[in-house]
Design a protein around this nucleic acid. Structure first.
Lengths: 254, 254
DNA sequence: CGCATCCTTGAGGGCCATCAAAATGCGTGG
DNA sequence: CCACGCATTTTGATGGCCCTCAAGGATGCG
């Protein structure tokens, strides 16, 4: 897979836009991108990278592990998006300056820090790379929109199936999925926060998925025997991920 | 109000970022922005500006009227966001090239078309203005996130109240709200599409809001006698709109 | 082996979908 | 000015999804 050779050359940023528009990055841009990472850190499970309202002067590339964007309301946490390796998780905060949400590690994570002054340089001197940065934040927005629709459309068992289908697909794009599923440190309680349901109901919904042979979830191991069945149950259409679906930009260039 | 003098000078783009970071635009940038509009059009109710999958070579500034971003699934339409005058509604498609969603007029709308080649020039030569363009698309993403949380958190009557509170607040920022509410061509069926509910249930929910004195809705006229009551019922916290709330950037500059 | 975390199970009630139908308001044309 | 068609709003009855309260079982770690 392309991802592994890219990772050898660019250990910190080799997965950025992999499966999407990475092919549109020139060698020079890839080198420039890798050089933006000023420091690499390992963060423990549950670590909160950024809290709502923080003013920040750097953004974070997720190199290894998983992260969750959350919002708090009342005394509950709600998940609004999920991140996999290769995601430039808080590139947003370069333009927003103050983030509207929290970013938390799910399991241990390895991240690369990118100072905003370097991104400002890119804005001034590398418009094409800047445009791809912009693209990557809009990809998040497209995923948000899909999730809004799915929340409006689907019941809880299907919502969970949709999360499984999306994460599996995204891990596939960066070469981290297995034939029959994927591993993630997500708990049933995390899934509940992402679905707007109670952990109790999520548990029952997962039981249903298991019983009907759609997916199995046990302590972070998601196993799927029939991809088609999962995706049709969840009404999952991968186009919105801008990989190789109908919205793909591969053949167009920018 | 500031909005009206800005509109005299910049009839097509005078509301862009009004109430948010418009103060951060220099006179020169405002002139540049206004000059980007190559053509103004009036579009009829229900007109579909862009459909999912279209490749487009221009973006659209909403000058007057309202628009809805939608996604279709099964044989139903789902609303994922709502637009008011001053919104650069499909700036996204400059970087995405192919849009993942549809954009439709709700009522008659007046729009300004901006060719992508002009935006590409801005990217090359006006990094600060480019950054504000980026900001405006991230504002959409922040609104998406809030809506995801609200869908996870709220029942239908509160969702409707939240839509009322948000739209009222956004119209206020661009000087288009009344003391006691606002007007919009939205129907109960549109609200249903935005809430993921049936029109029937939306009707009953509106009845509840009316009975409990939270808000009245009749053929597009939203009337609210007690703002505080509405906002607390909907759990509406306007920070995420990046106006004058806790996340405001006014005092920081960029 | 105790403890914390995570997962599982049961009973009762409220929210919202579906099916079915009707009333209201508005624009158009006779 | 009225008749008509159409979109929009309103109402009623039944059933399924998911919440809450309450408790119990499994797994891994020190």
């Amino acid at each position: 897979m392309a991802a592994s050779t890219e990772l050898e050359r660019f250990p910190n940023t080799g997965l950025f836009l992999e499966g999407r528009l990475r092919h549109d990055l020139s060698q020079e841009e890839k080198v420039e991108l890798e050089s933006l990472v000023s420091r690499v850190e390992i963060l423990p499970d549950g670590h909160r990278l950024i809290s709502r309202g923080d003013i920040c002067d750097h953004s974070t590339m997720l190199i290894d592990g998983f992260m969750l964007r959350t919002l708090d309301s009342g005394d509950r946490r709600y998940g609004v998006s999920f991140h996999v390796p290769g995601d430039f998780v808080d590139l947003h905060c370069f333009a927003l300056k103050r983030l509207d949400h929290n970013i938390e590690c799910v399991g241990q994570a390895k991240v690369g820090l990118v100072p905003h002054e370097r991104i400002a340089e890119v804005m001034k001197e590398k418009p094409h790379l800047a445009r791809l940065f912009w693209f990557s934040t809009l990809l998040d927005a497209a995923m948000h929109r899909e999730w809004i629709m799915k929340l409006e459309q689907l019941k809880v068992p299907q919502r969970i199936a949709h999360i499984f289908a999306e994460v599996w697909c995204r891990l596939d794009m960066v070469g981290l999925a297995f034939e029959d599923g994927f591993d993630t440190p997500l708990t049933q309680a995390d899934l509940a926060d992402m679905c707007g349901a109670t952990p109790i109901h999520v548990n029952r919904a997962i039981g249903e998925l298991r019983k009907s042979g759609i997916a199995d979830f046990n302590r972070g191991e998601v196993r799927i025997c029939n991809r088609e069945k999962l995706e049709s149950f969840a009404d999952f259409e991968k186009d919105y991920l801008y990989g190789d679906g109908a919205l793909s930009l591969r053949q167009d260039g920018l």
